[in-house]
Amino acid sequence: MSWLERLRRFKGNPVHGKEFRERFRLRRTVWIMTIYLTVIGAVMLGFMYLELMDQSVFVPGEYRDFFIIFSGLQLVMIGFLAPGLSAGAISGERERQTLSILLTTQLSPLSIIGSKLISSLAFIGFLVWMSLPLYSFVFLFGGISPQEVATVFLFFVINIFFFGSLGLFCSTWMKRTGVSTVTAYAVTFLIVAGTGILIYFWAHFAAQLDWDLDHMLSFQLFVSLNPVYAFLTIFEDQLRNETMLKIDPWLIYACFYTAVSLLLIFGSAYLLNPLRRSRRKNDIIKN
């Protein structure tokens, strides 16, 4: 089958449509949207209120922290929602006893995984898109360049893609949605907090041994894989300048986790294939 035909089939894949239809018919979806906007809006507006209530003079450009905090909050929500939403994509089909039927259709395991991922990620993307009006409050205060805004949104896309792929992989690997969700959150925690703790110990250990961490490539690369650090380097020139790396840490983060996401997607497709073993071609007999 040609790549064009594969692309045409992927475009006509019915899984996205079914997933959107099913998701938006659930009352739970409305609650997720409401809670997402309420939490993110309340925290942001509350923070703004506390920061500004004692200020008598408004200086444009000095309030870029609002944008960073608001974006950080979005990142936390993405890390919280993306694995959870995709962790039931395949195991849910298995639990509903619909997976075997789906696998007997002409949809390939890769197209099933791809469309499941797209539908999960599209919903999270939709949540971020919904929060754009809240960003308008932050933009009022200025201090952020369009390039920083674009970079932050690209960073969100990469995180959505990675955490979604992680959840999907767990969902394909584990039989039960409960187990896959817990595993996906545990790995997310390890990536966020685990790498942070390791960096902390590494830094203290290095300080005792008088190691120059600013010129230690392995440490610089490892630090770049922490989402919080990578996120902060988008805004903080000082953090970027401290490193000996030629490229921005957030770019290393983006490249590494995009590659891991692709591995997770292909790994999921491999695990989903019920006939995963080498194939011998030209094996047709006359009926």
Binding site: L275, R279, K286, N287
Partner: peptide, 13 residues
């Protein structure tokens, strides 16, 4: 239908 289920799953499906 003459197709080996292991080597020609798309045709069999």
């Amino acid at each position: 239908g003459g197709y080996n289920v292991l080597t020609h799953p798309e045709e069999v499906r």
